[in-house]
């Protein structure tokens, strides 16, 4: 495989990374909460997807998206309604951060307790291994589908936020949570929906991860790092910036692995580091 193939596959990997980051960006943009358990939830959704796939062994893996999205949305909604909203009422702005940090430790250990530490994989037919030839470059079908899915979800999210009444309410709440109360809106209800959407996006990311590679309860930690890098590089709260940042990191990682097969995520981290030095506000960031 030549350099072109490496870059094409890096771009496709970037679709997954963009998906990792966008849920985190959404929650931060609206609630100003840095959700430390985002990575754990990506890993948890991989296990949820594994469970759903064992219940429905004969369906196409992409059919799993719907049940995973529904379960993830419900979990995110409930988490925000039962715990996070309470922590947001405390005077200390660090409380939600500490809450999600504590939850990430609990969820990780519950996954270890429940699923063990052996690497798991969803083997739903041979979909994960299919490959097509594009101008002589071997391209995996799953990565292409992942990127297309990521772009589709970004467009849907954008339309939801720009064109609907719910989107107006979410944007207004992000602008000023006190003033929307004067319009009869309870900000906590908006946060519930936003956390649900964020988890739904993380759920899809977890499913695609589970189809693509093996995972363990520890898979969340490094995905959280990727998510953070995507959000910071893209500019806080910018969705398309997150997608472009994901692609930049994906390309950097695969180019790095080609130069040195032992480098892991090092080159992507170096690109992130260089980027933050040169452009600390991110691609589309405006806030200081």
């Amino acid at each position: 495989m030549g350099w072109t193939g490496t870059i094409v596959n890096g771009v496709l990997l970037g679709g997954l990374y963009g998906l990792f980051g966008v849920g985190l960006a959404l929650v931060f943009g609206v609630t100003r909460i840095v959700n430390i358990m985002h990575g754990e939830f990506i890993a948890l959704s991989a296990f949820i997807a594994l469970g759903v796939s064992s219940l429905l062994p004969d369906v196409h893996p992409l059919v799993l998206i719907m049940p995973v999205v529904i379960v993830s949305f419900a979990l995110g909604y409930a988490l925000q309604a039962v715990l996070v909203n309470r922590s947001m009422r405390l005077p200390d702005p660090l409380a939600p951060l500490l809450l999600t940090f504590g939850l990430s430790v609990i969820v990780r250990n519950l996954m270890i307790e429940g699923f063990g530490v052996n690497p798991r994989h969803i083997r739903q037919g041979d979909f994960g291994q299919l490959s097509i030839d594009v101008f002589g470059i071997p391209v995996g079908v799953l990565p292409v589908v992942t990127l297309m899915l990521a772009v589709t979800l970004f467009v849907i999210l954008q339309l939801l936020l720009r064109r609907t009444e719910l989107g107006r309410i979410v944007r207004a709440t992000a602008d000023n949570a006190e003033i929307v109360r004067l319009m009869g809106v309870r900000p906590a209800s908006v946060y519930n929906i936003v956390m649900g959407l964020s988890f739904a996006l993380a759920g899809v990311a977890g499913l695609m991860l589970a189809l693509r590679t093996t995972f363990t309860p520890f898979s969340g930690v490094e995905r959280l790092l990727i998510s953070f890098e995507v959000v910071v590089m893209g500019g806080l709260g910018s969705f398309w910036g997150a997608m472009l940042a994901g692609i930049a990191l994906g390309v950097a990682q695969l180019v790095g692995l080609r130069l040195n097969p032992n480098s892991g995520f090092l080159y992507a981290n170096l690109v992130f580091f260089a980027f933050v030095m040169l452009r600390p506000n991110g691609l589309f960031g405006t806030r200081q």
Binding site: E165, R168, I169, R171, A172, A174, D175, N176, I179, V180, L182, M183, G184, V185
Partner: peptide, 21 residues
């Protein structure tokens, strides 16, 4: 409210529609 406190991410029409929720 004091300072008008319009929603900066919403255009004029969207700001008005927020009132009708």
């Amino acid at each position: 409210p004091e300072g008008r406190m319009l929603f900066p991410s919403l255009n004029v029409e969207e700001n008005l529609l927020m009132g009708a929720l």
